[in-house]
């Protein structure tokens, strides 16, 4: 009896060349445009913030690996550095430096290493870092400033993000701040003018989209999570008489959908599961934005869906080869 599918070839095997290191640095590359743009907008404070977070994440990783008696070299694989970068991307640029450092340490030590290190964490470490900071320092985590070119400065009275404007003043306040709908979309897309405000890494939707498409083309991620995430968010917003384009361009939607919800460790394995995961993220984001206490809900929605991943995986598990159909 011959079964072609079970045939194994003898060596040499073709290796894909993919490794953790390569994947991580590709993601880094994809985040580079957004990173550079944040430096242009926020200047030195963004540089300090991102560099400190990345280095500190690697130090934490190295210490943890040492304590756990694992090869310390793995701290160079980029996963810790990426977590550090994403933490710094998810905080306002004006935050005192020790706070994101604390968030980074928590993300690496507790969320990642205590659960068993790379590949074993249940939740996205960077997002737990953000949630921790938001719960701990609500004042610092919600005081925003425009980029210096656009009339912002560190000492300026805190301004509202576009989502904050929508939450407090409604559609009118938004239009008043941006002038017109067209210029609002453009500003948000390119992180320019009144749109140059928010967390360090979420300023320009276009550059994040660019990075996301790069990951897609390189095959690091599939389209299922980001597209179902953004599409659900837009459709639900539209159904409840909101502005769908604004919903996906503002806040952390792009950053979350392309770079954080797609984290391989904390997202479902199958495509069907990924679609459900993305839809859940989009729906929860809308619910938190519309009815929640905070103007932005991307991070919480992804964390909640992270918790649901084992359940989703169980529902949509691939049939084990050789077992009967149900």
């Amino acid at each position: 009896m011959e079964n072609k599918l079970l045939k194994l070839s003898s060596s040499p095997h073709i290796r894909s060349g993919d490794s953790v290191t390569k994947v991580m640095w590709t993601v880094f590359l994809a985040l580079l445009p957004a990173l550079i743009w944040s430096y242009v907008i926020f200047g030195l404070m963004a540089v300090k913030l991102t560099v400190v977070c990345v280095l500190f994440a690697m130090v934490c990783e190295a210490v943890c690996l040492k304590v756990r008696k694992q090869p310390i070299n793995s701290c160079w694989d980029g996963s810790a550095a990426l977590t550090g970068l994403l933490v710094s991307f998810n905080v306002p640029p004006t935050i005192p430096l020790w706070m994101p450092m604390l968030g980074t340490a928590l993300a690496i030590v507790i969320v990642k290493q205590c659960f068993g290190g790379l590949g074993c964490n249940i939740f996205n470490p960077a997002l737990i870092g953000r949630a921790f900071l938001l719960a701990s320092f609500p004042k610092h985590m919600t005081s925003w400033t425009l980029g210096a070119q656009f009339g912002g400065s560190v000492d300026a009275v805190s301004q509202a993000t576009p989502l904050g404007l929508l939450k407090e003043g409604g559609q009118e306040a938004l239009l008043q701040a941006f002038g017109s709908k067209g210029s609002m979309y453009l500003d948000l897309l390119f992180g320019y003018g009144r749109g140059a405000i928010g967390c360090v890494g979420e300023i320009s939707a276009a550059l994040l989209l660019l990075g996301g498409l790069f990951l897609l083309i390189r095959g690091i991620i599939t389209w299922h999570i980001p597209i179902s995430f953004l599409l659900t968010l837009a459709v639900v917003t539209f159904l409840f008489k909101g502005d769908p384009l604004f919903a996906i361009l503002s806040g952390g939607a792009m950053l979350g959908a392309w770079f954080m919800a797609t984290d391989m460790v904390t997202s479902p394995l199958t495509h069907k599961g990924q679609l459900i995961f993305g839809m859940g993220c989009g729906l929860l984001t809308f619910i938190i934005r519309r009815w929640g206490g905070y103007p932005e809900g991307v991070s919480y929605s992804i964390l909640i869906m992270n918790a649901a991943v084992p359940l989703i995986d169980g529902l949509f598990a691939n049939r084990v080869f050789g077992t009967g159909k149900k």
Binding site: P96, A135, P138
Partner: peptide
């Protein structure tokens, strides 16, 4: 000093 609010929660 700004305390880490979440520890109280």
């Amino acid at each position: 000093w700004d305390p880490i609010g979440i520890m109280i929660l």
